[in-house]
């Protein structure tokens, strides 16, 4: 995948130009790590329309990760769309635990056997243990949100073992949810990622994660997350 978008530079706003320059010199990759398509029960976006939107609006994204609720989409093959739109399209999952929702990157057939992705009450410890055993990464998402966010439960349940990364920028956050996530992540020395949590086409890219290395596959993404070579980015109000 070429990271050099095939568009004139003057089509971009200054912030995008800086991002694009860094892309041209091969330094940074920007991925939205949290999106939903019509495969999710509350998702209303077709993947092709995400691609069209990113390109027609000149969003500074190099790709996105589909994190469908309570499942892993084994069926869909987005490689043709990825090639057509010159985007990196990866598949992951968003599962539900007693600590709230958790993104899982690096889902394999063996990992799908390790726990029931459809469950709404998975033990987080079991999810983390299985991810570690199968080379995946578990990332609690929107952790500052009431009920479905990890930090809403740590007073009662304690700080869970094995969490290294949480989502600190979420495109659907309200009130002080992102700040709660940032404050707690700082206190607990977690790293942070960003994702739009988009359920409709026009919300993609509101938040994202910037990587130092090129990401072309889920293996690349998992390796970069484990290496800690990334930074959360909020693009709210600019895309």
């Amino acid at each position: 995948m070429s990271l050099a978008h095939r568009r004139p530079l003057w089509q971009f706003c200054p912030a995008h130009c800086i991002q694009l320059f860094l892309h041209f010199v091969g330094v940074l990759v920007l991925l939205d790590l949290h999106t939903h398509s019509i495969k999710s029960d509350d998702g209303r976006a077709k993947v092709e329309n995400y691609c069209q939107w990113i390109r027609s609006k000149n969003l500074p994204l190099d790709g996105f990760v589909l994190t469908e609720h309570r499942q892993f989409d084994n069926e869909s093959d987005y490689s043709a769309l990825a090639e057509k739109f010159d985007l990196c399209i990866l598949k992951a999952s968003e599962v539900e635990t007693e600590y709230g929702h958790v993104l899982v990157y690096g889902v394999t057939p063996a990992l799908q056997e390790a726990f029931d992705f459809a469950s709404i009450a998975l033990p987080l410890a079991k999810v983390i243990e299985a991810c570690n055993a199968h080379g995946a990464v578990a990332v609690p998402c929107h952790p500052g949100r009431p009920r479905v966010g990890m930090f809403a439960h740590t007073d009662e349940l304690g700080v869970p073992e094995g969490v290294n990364i949480v989502e600190i920028y979420n495109g659907g956050s309200r009130d002080q949810e992102d700040q709660i996530a940032i404050d707690n992540a700082t206190r607990l020395n977690y790293q942070g990622v960003g994702g739009s949590d988009s359920h409709i086409v026009s919300h993609v890219g509101r938040c994202a994660t910037r990587f130092d290395d090129q990401i072309e596959s889920m293996d690349d993404l998992v390796a970069a997350l484990k290496a800690g070579k990334f930074e959360a980015v909020s693009l709210k109000g600019t895309v």
Binding site: R44, G172, S173, R174, D175, H199, I200, V201, S202, H203, K236, G237
Partner: peptide, 15 residues
């Protein structure tokens, strides 16, 4: 795509 936002720019309803 439809979005109902409040003055803080928070999405309240989408569809």
């Amino acid at each position: 795509d439809l979005t109902v936002s409040n003055e803080k720019g928070e999405t309240r309803v989408f569809g």
